[in-house]
Design a protein around this nucleic acid. Structure first.
Length: 788
DNA sequence: AGTAGGCCACTTTTT
DNA sequence: GTGGCCTACT
């Protein structure tokens, strides 16, 4: 027996002492264990301590432990902590994401696979590129068969373990999609490539079909630990089940309230399934929060309590109430960004650490306005994700070259760079090359290598006809790289490639600034090539494919962090801004139709709130610049659930938000109408119609609201009529969202949306009650009477 | 084959 | 506002 309350592995800092529940979790014996861990309850700590405990106390060999995390970042973090606790064994533990673990297994067992061990991992861009070429080959309309949409469809199918042959065909379109899917899979095989979904799916079928493989891994992994279990999908659940099937020592940690990846196939009901599948499992609840103040926790709880179908949790902290939540009602998105930067600037002057701030938002596109504001203020910031680096043209080019060297069959990469820099190889030539390849019953890579090695001697050269010279030019340098790849170091290979294709010269067009920027990105890749000198090209490419942007955040940089709410999962900051609390943004429009999606948006907000240690800032904008014109925004419905008494207002409300608020309050978004029908617009206007027949209802509601605001001792979180100064701006639209108008021919209608163009021209979206139809009108074009 | 200019779709979220 | 893509011209 261990000294429970003083459990303290060798050399531990006393701060990392564990509470009783944590000790239970860390030291629980084998078998199935489910740890339900609220935010900030120290689950990463529990996981690392448990691994250390298994190795140090239970004498489990480290290589017999499998630990799966959700992101590479989390894996690296855990690895780092583990190395301090288990200096010897940490490296031998199998620790990584589902995807990286699967890659590891697949490379080891490549002899069973339809690809060889050098297979390339296709990311979404590669998938779309492949699909586009297939759609073109099939002579299909690329508007009707949109590659991006089909990629999603195929991904969904794979997540449900539906292969092309089993694809449910009900319409002629389905039949086409099935055909595309089939060709897509064939294309992957021909390119010696796997997409993200294949990594999981292939590993699973390998374990299913090859008993000896399954037994090897299941017997090997004495202990299996899974983090973020609520975000596992069906395939991952099966993988876990198989990998732990011999020893049955399965330890999973999760929190259904933090499940935010449903759209990717994650199913938090896996937690319930776990309880069913493992009858004698033990359940441990971690409810003490070590992160946030009580005010933050109360806010989080008030928000998440509105979700049905969840286990209520009693999160508590010993940290005290702390500061109130601050709420800023911005006029527009620029104002919102300025507020964030202004506030951060003030706090930094007062001595706050710049790195203690994070700004979180729903969509990556929201970062642009923030970046501008930060730059204007001269404050450095770090941006997480957002295709910052790996999405760049030059980065993708160079990676494609490297991928080609490693796997010459990779058709997507060949197509990408065969004409970079331009060497007179257009579509016609690529077609010719494919044709020749088909005739030879070979693959693009081999054909190119042979052409490159044997040159004009080879029959390929003759067959290529007029395209031969330019393709040979490329094939020659490519064959050269492949020849030297095993004898020179990775950085040397890298430099050789850039030199051979004269990539730097190629980048020279464009503005000077751009050239510096692009070349800088290439240099960053070069730096990584040095970093992976020992591990080799395969590791570098795997890392590039799997790690991507998330890991780019350098921890040394002492700056505020800008990131999406999704990217924020698992992180914590002293001060957290959540911006864009507009209805349609958070919750996002696309979640309006389905209750479960709306619940997920709420969890996303919950995740954001619970990242804050000390101070939470919330903000919304009444008007937002989207696609070049302004869109008026309603406050997020979630704001209604933030308790008034926990909120301190940063500003009073402007008149421009008044109408929005009225409409919001008028019923369409009321919390008690807690049903989200499939056709929201209809139900909304049915309700609107009912109300408009006796318009006093609206006045009543407005009065009620005013009374409520005046009586409550706290600042209201939403605008009320009474504290709105009457100030009109010139740039203001004449019509506002929620206005009732009368059109000479269409009759009465309600303004749904106002786009304010740069030249002051207003475009209106109006729903006409009589027509039961929505129309787009230019305001200057017609005379509209404002009814109300 | 390459490129300039115009059109239009785009914005969820990520391994 | 912008990047990707198509078309028409060189």
């Amino acid at each position: 027996m261990l000294p429970f309350n003083e459990y303290n592995p060798i050399g531990m800092d006393p701060r990392s002492l564990l509470n009783e529940q944590q000790v239970d979790a860390v030291t629980v014996e084998g078998g199935a264990t489910l740890v339900l861990a609220g935010p900030g309850s120290g689950k990463t700590r529990v996981l690392t301590h448990r691994i250390a405990h298994l190795i140090n106390e239970m004498k489990v060999p480290p290589q017999r432990i499998l630990a799966v995390t959700f992101t590479n970042k989390a894996a690296n973090e855990m690895k780092k902590r583990l190395e301090k606790m288990v200096p010897e064994g940490a490296k031998s533990v199998w620790l990584g994401t589902f995807h990286s673990i699967c890659v590891r297994i697949l490379r080891r067992e490549a002899r069973y696979l339809p690809v060889d061990a050098n297979f390339t991992i296709y990311d979404v861009d590669d998938q779309v590129a492949l699909l586009k070429s297939i759609i073109k080959d099939l002579n299909l309309n690329d508007k009707l068969y949109h590659a991006g949409g089909i990629q999603e469809t195929i991904s969904r199918a794979k997540n449900e373990m539906i292969m092309p042959g089993q694809y449910n065909v009900r319409t002629s379109r389905d039949a086409k999609i099935q055909e595309i899917y089939e060709r897509y899979q064939a294309g992957l095989r021909a390119s010696n490539a796997m997409d993200f979904d294949d990594l999981l799916l292939t590993a699973l079928s390998l374990l299913y079909e090859r008993e000896e493989v399954r037994e090897y891994y299941a017997a090997r992994f004495e202990h299996v630990l899974i983090d973020e279990f609520q975000d596992t999908n069906q395939i991952q659940y099966e993988l876990v089940r198989l990998l732990s099937s011999v020893h049955n020592n399965l330890f999973v940690v999760g929190d259904e309230d933090q499940s935010i990846y449903r759209w990717r196939g994650a199913d938090y009901r896996n937690v319930l399934r776990f309880e069913e599948d493992y009858g004698d499992f033990r359940k441990i609840l971690l409810e003490q929060n070590y992160r946030s103040t009580q005010n933050v926790l109360d806010t989080a709880r008030a928000v998440i309590d509105q979700n049905q179908y969840r286990t209520p949790k009693a999160l508590f902290t010993k940290r005290g109430n702390g500061n109130l939540i601050r709420f800023y009602n911005a006029e527009d998105d620029r104002d919102e960004a300025d507020y964030v930067v202004r506030t951060i600037q003030t706090e930094i002057k007062k001595g706050a650490n710049p790195a203690s701030f994070a700004v979180m938002y729903r969509m990556n596109s929201q970062s642009r306005m923030l970046e501008e504001a930060f730059m204007k203020a001269g404050i450095p910031y770090r941006l997480v994700g957002a295709q910052r680096f790996y999405g760049r043209r030059e980065v993708k080019d160079v990676i494609a070259f490297l991928r080609l060297v490693h796997n010459p069959k990779d058709e997507v990469s060949i197509r990408r760079v065969i004409n970079v820099p331009p060497r007179k190889i257009g579509d016609k030539s690529v077609e010719k090359l494919r044709e020749v390849t088909r005739l030879m019953e070979s693959n693009l890579g081999n054909v190119l290598i042979e052409l490159g090695t044997r040159g004009p001697e080879s029959e390929i050269y003759a067959a290529l006809d007029r395209s031969a010279a330019s393709i040979y030019q490329f094939a020659k340098i490519m064959a050269g790289w492949i020849e030297i790849k095993d004898t020179v170091s990775l950085p040397d290979l890298f430099d050789r490639i850039l030199m051979d294709v004269e990539y730097r010269e190629y980048l020279q067009d464009g503005s000077e600034e751009e050239v510096i920027d692009r070349w800088g990105n290439v240099q960053e890749l070069r730096r990584q090539a040095f970093e992976f000198e020992e591990l080799g090209l395969a590791s570098l490419l795997e890392n590039l494919a799997l790690v991507s942007d998330q890991d780019t955040i350098s921890e040394k940089l002492e700056s505020p962090t800008l990131l999406t709410l999704h990217a924020a999962k698992g992180l914590e900051f002293d001060r957290v801004f959540i911006i864009g609390l507009d209805d349609g943004l958070l919750p996002h429009n696309r979640s309006f139709e389905e209750e479960e999606e709306m619940a997920e948006e709420r969890r996303l907000f919950y995740v954001g709130i619970t990242r804050a240690r000390d101070q939470l800032y919330l903000a919304r904008a009444g008007r937002r610049n989207m696609f070049g014109s302004y869109e008026y925004q309603l406050p997020s419905r979630f704001l209604k659930d933030v308790p008034d008494e926990l909120v301190e207002m940063e500003n009073t409300f402007r008149s421009s938000t008044q109408n929005n608020y009225d409409r919001w309050e008028r019923g369409s978004y009321r919390r008690d109408t807690n049903r989200y029908q499939s056709n929201r617009k209809d139900s909304f206007f049915e309700e609107w119609d009912r109300k408009s027949t006796k318009s006093r209802t609206w006045d009543e509601l407005r009065e009620n609201q005013d009374r409520k605001n005046n009586n409550s001792g706290h600042a209201p979180i939403l605008p009320s009529k009474s504290d709105a100064p009457t100030r009109e701006k010139k740039s203001e639209a004449t019509y506002k969202v929620g206005m009732k108008i009368k059109h000479p021919t269409f009759g009465e209608g309600m303004v749904l949306n106002v786009h304010l163009e740069g030249d002051g021209e207003e475009t209106l979206e109006i729903f006409f009650a009589e027509l039961k139809q929505q129309k787009k009108l230019a305001a200057s074009f017609i005379k509209l009477d404002i009814v109300e």
